[in-house]
Design a protein around this nucleic acid. Structure first.
Lengths: 360, 360
DNA sequence: AATTATTTGTGCGTATGTATC
DNA sequence: AGATACATACGCACAAATAAT
């Protein structure tokens, strides 16, 4: 009995329904004002009022002398911003400049703009960046590297909100569990497996592993590492596995005695990534441990650090160029087709250099 | 006599004029429909039509039972895009990752988004990027590094168009002549001067110079170089000055004989930047010329390349961090106040390392 | 090329409803 | 409670643009 909706809204809602049902389509001519007036038993002025509302919303366009037409700007989709956001943990080091370069190439040649932001692997920054996307609704898609993906993340809810808004998101390098969003990354389990297998094939039996705990890539690489040891029938020594976190990587000298004591029984070590490996190399140098004579090292990522290290490092090759290209290409496709499956896992390979010694 | 404008537009234009003249302000209450009806001698329906137009444009807001109020969304300024574009020649090498990092910090903490694009120092890409800014009107400001600033640039007209649209632009590293836009950069003349003076003070008299010709930074560094030689009373030997261009830097081996022949009489050389200097170091190594014993080298920019080169290079220090911060800070100010003077020149300093030998 | 019918745009009139102060 | 404000709704007449004849 609460007849509060104005009469002209009848017309407005009718048009919207017809549009959604597909009975009226973009470009179609709407009935004339006089026809609608008869159809809805309302005065022409009231019809005009309704059509004005529809015009304001961008649903119809009126052309004097011709008629009223349905617009392409269907009320559902908002205008494209032409921005694709690229959010990584860092910019100025490691593989990041290269990945960003490759993505920008693809994004710009598809006619989009590349928007960047960096989390420095902190939850605060990740939160601020995601919140800004939600507040300003300024991006058509988000390519993002997870922050501390190995730990429970309070920002997951923000990702869910973006997902509900149907903003395409692709994770790069890694991804959060319990969040059904696509990712493009290297298969880190295989990376860990390849690394340890290479050492086993070279005759090593007592193999240490240094992994990052606050990062899911660390968990995956560890998983592959363990799998390799087990399938070779080697024992797992818990004290040969060292967990570090993002903070530790910035102060590796504080971990020196801890790490060296744990490693000292081993002939080889898998390192989480090149940065960690380089720290270990420096640590060994300070402590007169020669590489690879006394300790073989294999790392993961194969960045410039591995190639230009004092002792060139054997490393599991991260397909940097391909990864940047693939994730950007998939994002473009995902924007065009929201149901596109944008997942992709790269199978890594080995770049052999001088940091692994063959036993016997 | 062409009285084609509708009557209700009288009211619309009157309100807009009052707004611009400051006689009506944000939040003010507009006269009631009946009052306006009398004032303009038009029916209340016509007044309502006019107010509807103003409402559509976001200029007024109607509140039933209360009145019609002026909105803050003044019609003059378009909505902020919150994007600041950062256009550099490269991303993945040299000082660029660091500069971008510093800029992003400032830009994001000011609440803006950082949009990136890279020209790879080609006119085609520069043109495409600027054209995209013009077409989509998507940025509030542009921080851009010139492309081949030493040569006549056919894209200047695009910069002029952006300037006419009052989009703030700040050049970084260098700037185009005949284009009255601000820049933030190191003073390259002083850099060239400091470099050559350092060699002169170390006792060198026959000093070569290698400069980039398609880059105005090259011209400036050369200018300072010449000034230093002249004030020290040294002769200028044209064959000791070598001009290279962007293409050459990618194929330095093709320039080997040319460069070595010209340098062979000299005891020292100023190099345009660290990349060139590193090429020269490699060239000398291949040709058994020892540095700094047979040839002293001083370069400019003081990037990682200089620090981590086989022979750590004495280099004129580019204030990378400060530059990124300053240009971004100035851009924020420029956006807030279009008349802000955003120019800034950094005075470089010397980072002394091992590539310059003291004579006598 | 001109005419005519159709369609939207402009302008005003009246009456009543409903929210605000 | 009453005055005032905007909102809805219907009525009519004519202008201007368009499209078809």
């Amino acid at each position: 009995m609460n007849e509060k909706v104005p009469k002209y809204m009848e017309l407005v809602n009718w048009v919207k329904l017809k549009l959604e049902a597909g009975e009226l389509n973009t470009g179609d001519k709407l009935y004339s004002e006089n026809q609608l007036s008869k159809m809805f038993s309302m005065s022409r002025q009231t019809v005009r009022h309704g059509i004005s509302k529809l015009e304001q919303e961008g649903i119809v366009e009126r052309i004097q002398g011709s008629g009223t037409y349905l617009c392409n700007k269907g009320m559902v989709k908002q205008p494209k911003t032409l921005n694709i956001a690229v959010v990584t943990t860092y910019v100025d080091r490691y593989i990041f400049p290269n990945v960003i370069k490759e993505m920008e190439k693809v994004i710009s040649s598809a006619g989009y703009f590349t928007q960047i932001a960096f989390t420095y692997n902190t939850l605060e920054r990740e939160r601020a960046i995601l919140q800004k996307f939600l507040d300003h609704n300024i991006v058509d898609g988000i390519i993002i590297e997870p922050t501390k993906s190995g730990l429970p993340n309070p920002n997951i809810e923000l990702y869910r909100q973006l997902k509900r808004r149907k903003i395409p998101i692709i994770f790069i390098n890694c991804y959060y569990p319990n969040l059904d969003l696509p990712h493009v990354a290297m298969d880190d389990r295989i990376a860990g497996l390849l690394a340890v297998n290479h050492l086993i094939e070279a005759g090593h039996k007592r193999i240490a592993g240094i992994f990052k705990a606050d990062d899911r890539q660390g968990h995956f690489r560890y998983t592959g590492f363990i799998k390799g040891l087990l399938s070779a029938g080697l024992d797992i020594h818990d004290d040969h596995i060292i967990w570090i976190d993002t903070e530790d990587t910035n102060h590796m000298e504080d971990n020196e005695s801890r790490i060296l004591n744990r490693i000292k029984d081993c002939t080889a070590s898998v390192c989480y990534n090149d940065e960690v490996a380089v720290s270990i190399v420096e640590m060994c140098k300070r402590n007169k441990i020669s590489i690879p004579q006394q300790l073989s090292i294999i790392s993961i990522d194969d960045s410039d650090l591995a190639a230009y290290c004092e002792i060139p490092l054997t490393s599991i090759a991260y397909p940097i160029k391909e990864l940047g290209e693939k994730v950007a290409t998939n994002m473009i496709q995902l924007i065009q087709n929201y149901n596109f499956d944008a997942n992709y896992d790269f199978i890594p390979t080995i770049s052999m250099r001088d940091s692994v010694r063959r036993l016997r």
